[in-house]
Structures are given as structure tokens and as C-alpha cells.
Nucleic acid binder design. Sequence first.
DNA 1: CGTATTTGACCCGCGC
DNA 2: GCGCGGGTCAAATACG
Length: 423
Amino acid sequence: MGEDGRRVRSLELGGSAGVVDEMDFFAKEEQERARRASTTDHGVPRLGLKKDDPAVNIGFQLFPATLERDPPMVQHRSPPDEDNDAKRVLEAMQAELARTNEENRRLKNMLSDATNNYNALQVHLIRLMQERNLSDGNTQFHEVTSEVDERREEGGAMVPLQFIDLRPASVVDEESYSITDEGTRRRRSSSPADPPPSNSSEQEHEASTRKARVSVRARSSAPMISDGCHWRKYGQKMAKGNPCPRAYYRCTMAAGCPVRKQVVQRCAEDRSVLITNYEGTHNHPLPPAAMAMASTTSAAAAMLLSGSTSSSEGVTNPGNPLARAIMPSSSGVVTVSASAPFPTVTLDLTRTPGPLPASSSSPRVFGQPPGNQSKPQPVTDTVSVATAAMVADPNFTAALAAAISSIMGRKGDGGTHQTSDSK
DNA sequence: CGTATTTGACCCGCGC
DNA sequence: GCGCGGGTCAAATACG
């Protein structure tokens, strides 16, 4: 390749010799240098000698080698030559292009590695949770974990988060069953075809996990927080002891997803606080914004099922390492309550959790003071961002953004991309 | 006209 | 057994 490249360049060099006059770029300098360096009386540069000029040859030979490094845009000037300069500019631009491509490749690799690490950590987290359950005598969890691992390792490619069900198989089946039609299930229970409700401990466990729900408290004046999903209202009730009605929504993003239920109501004491309860897991691909909330609720539900149900009292997040792993930046805003009838994880986005890195996308979400209700809209829209920030460690996001921006910044002026935007 | 919302009726679980 | 409350259904209505 080197020889051919040189030959081509030589040919180009020779071919462009005749168009020197058309190159205006460094005309002044060129004339000056030509007057000094060239001994020929004509304006025709010593192109023939240039081929033998060691400096030029070295430059041509070194260019490919310096592509991997940071070649200076302006090479040291060899004997004045317009064509030579033009060629060098061209070479420099080509080198820059090649370097940019190389950096793009590196960035892609970095991003892929980071995502891989994230997924690996998530799988590891799930495994830990399920091993914990395994010690309680539930043997199904481990198998599911192995399945997830195998899926991940076999495919090599990343499994979309929405397809990784964080719950154990029994829970998945149970939830999909119950959520498919909880109402009809109740009705069906009277049918003779239904197996009589046996009172095994397994079913008791399923019954408890089936109703695991995630409650999100956020300040918003909107009737419903926008989490990226498409919800259809199917009912409304006046709740006891609350002047504000309670609305019932169902996910309509997929025909086969009647499973999702969402209950929204306003806090009785503070009507600016919107309480949203999520039950179940989506069985269809989700947009990134919706995926954030879905993964949050899923992770929270998994956290709930991981062993905190042993306590009948509320357990705050800092005491739960798993919760800390899921929501590292939200200490104090996550409450796990295993009290009857169903265990609930409460994500309180109305409290101030403490200082957060400024580079993260989450700080503007948390801790909206009650006085800052002049702009309620961002609060509604950023709930998904908050959940995204909780699912994806903000520190990780910030570090990734910093790394990418540093790389982009090294290159020069190309670093204005919003790579830190969470999905 | 298709889709989303409203709203009264109905079902079911639970406590008394 | 009965009443209450939560949750869901489905017809009617509104809306784009």
C-alpha cells in the first residue's frame, strides 16, 4: 500500500504541477519563498527535484504512520512550493478525516463497552437478588438468572432493557396472568374450570409478589405525569377520605398490553403532589423515555421482592444496599413498604435528596421546592428523566459524558453534542 | 369517523 | 349475611 500510495501521490504531484497558478492560497509567501529558494529563472518551481527532496519524501512516508497520532495541521515548511502546500493541506485534511473516523470508532467501542458493563452489572445485581431469594428456598430464580446470562452471552449483542424482565419466572408468569385481566380473573374465579385456590406457600408468595407496586410521588399540576408511555383512562373513582378523584389508566402502546395499570391521585394534604402507582411490567418494546420509568418500576419491584418483604414496616432506602445500587443518587427518597395488602416501593420525587453532581441530568428534577411551581410543566416531563437518572447512575452518566466530551474536545471544535442526555 | 374520555353500574374482597 | 370500598366494564359522549 505504501508504494502504491507513494506512486499515486507522485503522479498527483506531477499532474498538479501545471496548475500552480490557480492555487492562490499562499501566493504571497509562495512568491517570496520561490524567490529565495529557487535558483531557476522561471516561475516554474523545481518540481522535478522535489521528488528527490528528502524532506518531502519523509513527509509523505510519515503521514500514514502519524495518522494514529495527532498530526499537526501545518507541517514544517519544506522548500516553498504552492503545489506542495496544497498537497500537504490535502494530506492534513485527509489525515484529520482518518483520525476523526478512528475516534468515532473508538467512541463507539467505548459506548458499547460502557453499555455492556452497565448490563453486566444489572444482570449481576439481579443474580444477587435472586441468589438471596434462593437462600430462602426458591429454586426457580437461579434458573431464570442463568437464562438471562446465557441470552446475554450467546447473543453478544445487547438485550434491550425492556426485554430483560427483572422478575423471577414465577413472578413473571403470575404478573402477566394477573395483569392480563385482574378483573376477569376475579370473575373467572367463580367458574368451575378454575382450579380451586390451593393454600400452598408458593401461591401465597405469588399472591404477594403479584401485587407489588411502585408508587411515584412527584410535584405536578398536570393531571398525569408523562413517563413516555401511552395511557388510556378507563375509570375514575372518588377515593375515601380524599376529595380528589382517583383515576385509572391502562397502557395502550400495545394491543397485548392490557397488563399495565396505573392509578393516579393527588395527595390530600398537598394537591401539588401527584401520586402514581405502577403495577406490572410492559410486555412490549418501549421508547427510551418510557423505558426509564418502566425499568425503574421493574427494578424497584425486583428490589421489593428481593427480601425486604420480611419486614412489615417501612424500610428506607439507605439501609438497603440493593436500593442504593438501583437508585444511587436518591437516598432518602425511596421507601420500601412491605405492609399489607401489597408491598410498595415509593419513589418520592418531592423531597430534596441532597447535592448532586451538576453534570448529571437529574438535579433539576429532584427537590423541586414547593415555591417553584411557576413552571410545573418541566416537572411533569422530567419525571422520566428522574427515573432515568435513577436507573442509570448519574455518576456514570456524568463520567461517560465527561469522557466523551474530553475526547471530542481534544479533537477541537466538534464537541457540542449532547451525549450526556439520558434516554 | 375513529379514538379518547366520562360515568354509572357491576363485581369482588374484606371487615363487622 | 350485609354493607362498604376499591377496581373494572362498557355504553354514552366528546373531541380532533
